[in-house]
Design a protein around this nucleic acid. Structure first.
Lengths: 126, 126
DNA sequence: TTGTTAACGCAACCGAGTTGCATTAATAAT
DNA sequence: ATTATTAATGCAACTCGGTTGCGTTAACAA
């Protein structure tokens, strides 16, 4: 399950996330790295990195897959559920540190949640 | 923009939502109605019903498209943003009436938001 | 009853993501 | 350093949700 070798694909992907403080979509990663790394590999490495607790995965508008660095997660689980903000003009995806209270819901067991806030980012909001 | 004729496709789709108090995914509607209504038509009618403020649309897990009845919406906009709960066992999708506070976010303009809570529903939670 | 055009069906397409399998290369063993 | 093991990769083909273009049908107004 957890075996990960230090290959150039893993390095290249981790590098993209080291450079960026924001989220990156799977398709964006394929366009950035697709000439040197096969897209199948990109998707597989992303899955691995999520399993490892290094990245977290969530959905953007239109349900597309996005990834961002984790904060204090591990193989045993993702702990830092936080809202994401996606700009409807430039599509930039931010991880927000704002804590949002999810209430208990009668008779249901909550396992996780996703909050996607959409609007205009700092640069596009004028 | 808003012109809608009372065709059998519109009737059939509205009927599905009249019968159900929960959300229905686009693919589920295609399997239910696909023998009598072409899937292109299904997607087009759904779009129309969302424009009309009769249904609202949102994403389930894996980013799939879901629809549910609106409450007090109109062609001028969807007003009843509420969280959705999807059961990870049976995939049932509920509209929740719980109000969840979305804070203002510095320098950004919030236009809308989606909250998807996942877990076990009443029947699957034992 | 007829004319207009919204709505429909069909076929073909698109794009994100996946699968199977043969090949390559990272790590462990010698 | 050399070899053996098997995780990781590349490739091609595929799946599936959803869309587009276009000719035909049928709702509604005249």
């Amino acid at each position: 399950m957890g075996i990960i070798r230090t290959t150039k694909s893993v390095g290249a992907l981790l590098n993209e996330f080291k450079k960026a403080s924001v989220g990156i979509s799977a398709t964006e990663l394929v366009t950035r790295l697709g000439k040197t790394i096969n897209k199948t590999t990109i998707y597989r490495v992303l899955d691995k990195l999520v399993e490892e607790g290094i990245l977290h995965s969530f959905n953007g508008k239109n349900g597309s897959k996005w990834y961002a660095k984790c904060n204090g997660c591990s193989t045993s689980g993702h702990k830092d559920a936080h809202p994401h903000f996606q700009c409807l003009s430039c599509n930039k995806m931010d991880c927000l540190s704002n804590a949002i209270e999810i209430p208990e819901i009668s008779n249901r067991k909550i396992i996780n949640h996703q909050i996607l806030i959409q609007g205009q980012c700092e640069s596009c909001n004028h």
